[in-house]
Write a protein that binds this DNA or RNA. Structure first.
Lengths: 203, 203
DNA sequence: CTTATTCTTGGTTGACCATTCAACTAAGTA
DNA sequence: TACTTAGTTGAATGGTCAACCAAGAATAAG
């Protein structure tokens, strides 16, 4: 993995960067070729179509959830509930250093591609699944700190919802306000759930 | 307003329909012309560029929030908190009858247009503002049923976040599950806020 | 009726799009 | 050596795109 990356790898990384910056539709194959310093033939030798490049990018995101997203976010954070907010803080940082222009790449693609071919839609869903699963694990670890019978998977989906909705608004307003308001709302909610669980310990 | 609509109107309505169905980038000027049964020159007589058609569509959405969105959703619903959920139910219905393909037109455009020209971005933000303001009004009417000192505008933003995030996931999964889970989470949260406000009445 | 204005017609322009292809190179094998 | 395969080159293809515009029709004003 230390040797120079293959042309196919360069192409996928270039596409990942450009899809994040400009979206899928507005990124031309030429753009990818220029960014990766490759030729059209090389791309079409490695990938049948532009959409297959997208699939490779989405696959890379899926594989990267653990090592590229969760690992850095959770460094030095042990508490499972705090890990959730550390993850959200990671997205906040991304918004901050890009002046609220880049958000969640998966969410952007999910809404840009109105009627994506089934394989694309499935990979987007798989990415969401991986994210929700990670949050669900945190919630499960929090265990008795949450009310008995909490549907942790549904709560995980709710947390993804809050992240994506907050990112969407912040990108539109070009301000962190809406994202912060959304995370604050979530924080308040989780605090109340924990307070409730504490009171009802007996029973 | 009973006379046949002008060509410009037909074009804007056609564009509204197509932008919702296929997004802005994937809708060509030709598509709009075909749908509106008009010619290219007519469009460019009424609008300098395609983007100006988008601006007209966004303006129409903005004007329509009250009469086209809130009025039907709130028919027969008086309770301010229930009005919020009636509004969310309206989006659920839209998802349902389109097999989870159409969601919120503003949200879709907001994420599709990665770096929109300032006037477009501002109109998207104005649309969000109008929505949040309407929800805020409901929350303000709920008054003492919410904890003292509740930031109703921030809570309104949070509710928009939940709607948009839920719609995004449901469109990706092609299932109402994630939307329902998100609304259920919000319902639980608002219930807890109201329970809290009731207990702390005295003070 | 005449003139001015507004709107419509539809063909045209030139840029850009994803994709293809025949020719070429480099590396491996026997 | 001769042959095979994987990867590369970059020009060419056919199509679609937003936008333009000259000419004509409809409408309104004098």
């Amino acid at each position: 993995m230390e040797n120079p990356p293959s042309t196919a790898d360069r192409l996928v990384f270039a596409a990942m960067k450009l899809f994040l910056e400009k979206g899928y539709g507005s990124t031309s194959v030429q753009d990818i070729l220029r960014e990766a310093k490759a030729n059209a033939g090389s791309l079409y030798h490695a990938f049948p179509t532009k959409q297959d490049v997208l699939l490779a990018v989405l696959g890379l995101y899926r594989e990267g959830i653990g090592p590229m997203l969760l690992a850095p976010a959770w460094e030095g954070v042990e508490d499972p509930i705090e890990r959730i907010f550390a993850l959200l803080a990671q997205y906040r940082r991304a918004l901050q250093i890009t002046d609220c222009t880049y958000g969640c790449p998966i969410g952007s693609l999910a809404l840009e591609l109105h009627e994506p071919d089934p394989p694309v839609r499935e990979l987007l869903a798989t990415n969401f699944d991986g994210w929700v699963e990670a949050v669900k694990d945190c919630l499960d670890q929090a265990g008795a700190r949450l009310p008995r019978g909490t549907d942790t998977r549904a709560l995980g989906q709710f947390i993804l919802t809050v992240m994506e909705g907050g990112v969407m608004q912040s990108r539109t307003y070009r301000t962190l306000d809406a994202f912060d308001a959304s995370v604050a709302g979530l924080r308040d909610y989780l605090d109340r759930l924990q307070a409730d669980a504490k009171i009802n310990m007996r029973s």
